[in-house]
Design a binder for these strands. Structure first.
Length: 414
RNA sequence: GGAGGAUUAGCCAAGUGGUUUACGGCGACAGUCUCGAAAACUGUUCUCCCGAAAGGGAGGCGCAGGUUCGAAUCCUGCAUCCUCCGCCA
């Protein structure tokens, strides 16, 4: 959410941002409602001032006068409340303004490649995709997964389990050694966290809702961790706060029924290690931190010796809350293409404002924090490039050096 | 799931219907003093609205409603924490 005063002072910028992000905002309505709200607020405040004055007198006449005043105040207050709710609703739909360094574009075709790392492997044999590899080596069972848990459900089996735990553990340890505070975050969360994150009101269909308990299943640890300090005022001295959080993640994938229907790419449930930073309200510093998060994730892929490329997301392909966003795409041989494995975002104070996450500056003022996050590793998706890039002619799979201690062997074969 | 207790500002904490304009303390920030610091003293330290400013006004006591001329205080619902009982990996 952006501040209404900021929007009014930077109306053209905000309008351009919404257009570039392909979002529709009812600007005229927003401004009109704001006017109405201000007018109502003034009237309500004036009437309350009068009420307070009358109440002080404590005479019989004052009581009669107070009773009359109460009626008109009640109506006005009700009106103010509903107008305020309407204002909030529209305000919630205003997307954040991208940084000037973000490429402008309609959709994913407008994304800009920043760099590539690693060499795409050349195979002198017919390669298998991860589904076939996993089947032959008894590493994943999608058929029985579907039988038990429905579409997009799966079992990991044998070394795949060790690989998944290993890679999660590896990423976790790396980030901890860089000074990030480890967290295990709840996957079951209250509704306000999803609004706070900027997932709602837009992405309701993407999120599982447990009606009986009115809880939601978070699609990422970003949701609980962004609200970790909600409603609190941190000290500038303690910023930036850096976290590395593990959580099981749940996504309905409602908008992508036809997409990636096979294999481990798009799943309803997966495990993720997420990096998060809560920082001060200084854009240049936050942009530097965004690069730090990016660098951390690149390092993990480099350790795994997986070829990847870094994409700078264009305005049309980034979400509402983002100021700037990079995707890291890892080489997936069966696709003959790079596929998204990590996503690095800077939200400015967009989320912080929504969850009331603030800090006190050195000179005693309160400010909204900046929030950032990036995937460290998400699995099983990361197993796709891992299995496919490391496959060998005889159908076995070499284990990346850094994961050998976790898997307990150098080659997976049957 | 049941019974009881609690929730006040960054932290601790007083206050049980009307000089409460939320007592007081700690911390933080600014100033005085100082070569500099500590101490001491003075001031500031939640949010919103109007205003160029000076200033004025409103709201804030876990959250949301309600009663009353007037609510931190009374009522209803909800959340969270603590103690005990039950169930449980």
């Amino acid at each position: 959410m952006l501040d209404i005063n900021f929007i009014k002072e930077n109306l053209e910028k905000c309008k351009a941002a919404a257009i570039n992000k392909n979002r529709v905002v009812e600007w005229d309505k927003l401004l009109a409602i704001d006017e109405t709200w201000r007018r109502l607020t003034k009237s309500v405040d004036d009437l309350r001032a009068k009420r307070n004055e009358i109440a002080k007198k404590q005479t019989e006449e004052a009581k009669v006068e107070g009773r009359q005043l109460k009626e008109s105040l009640k109506g006005l207050e009700e009106e103010q409340r509903s107008v305020e709710a309407e204002l909030q609703t529209i305000l919630m739909t205003v997307p954040n303004v991208p940084d000037t360094s973000v490429p402008i574009g309609k959709d994913s075709s407008g994304n800009v490649e920043v760099r590539r790392w690693g060499k795409e492997p050349v195979f002198d044999f017919g390669i298998k995709d991860h589904i076939e590899l996993a089947k032959k080596l008894d590493l994943m069972d999608f058929e029985r997964g579907a039988k038990v848990g429905g579409f997009r459900a799966y079992f990991l089996k044998n070394e795949a389990v060790l690989l998944e735990f290993g890679i999660l553990q590896y990423a976790l340890r790396k980030l901890v050694s860089k000074g990030y505070t480890p967290l295990m975050a709840p996957s079951l969360v209250k509704e306000f966290t999803l609004f706070g994150n900027g997932q709602f009101p837009w992405g309701r269909d993407e999120v599982y809702h447990l009606e009986k308990d009115d809880l939601y299943l978070a699609g990422t640890a970003e949701v609980p961790v962004t609200s970790y300090y909600s409603d609190e005022i941190l000290s500038e001295m303690d910023l930036p706060k850096k976290f590395v959080a593990f959580s099981p993640c749940f996504r309905r994938e409602a908008g992508s029924y036809g997409k990636d229907t096979k294999g481990a790419y798009r799943l309803h449930q997966f495990n993720k290690i997420e990096q998060l930073i809560i920082s001060t309200n200084e854009m240049s510093n936050s942009l530097t931190l965004l690069e730090e998060l990016l660098h951390n994730s690149e390092e993990i892929l480099q350790d795994l010796k997986l070829p990847y490329r870094v994409m700078s997301m264009c305005t049309g392909d980034m979400g509402e809350p983002q100021v700037k966003k990079y995707d890291i795409e890892t080489w997936m041989p069966s696709r003959g293409a790079y596929g998204e494995t990590m996503s690095d975002s800077l939200m400015g104070d967009f989320q912080a404002r929504r969850v009331k996450l603030r800090y006190r500056t050195k000179d005693g003022k309160t400010q909204y924090c900046h929030t950032l996050n990036n995937t460290a590793v998400a699995s099983p998706r990361i197993l796709i490039p891992l299995l496919e890039n490391y496959q060998q002619k005889d159908g076995s799979i070499r284990v990346p050096d850094v994961l050998v201690p976790f898997v307990g062997k150098e080659v997976i074969s049957r």
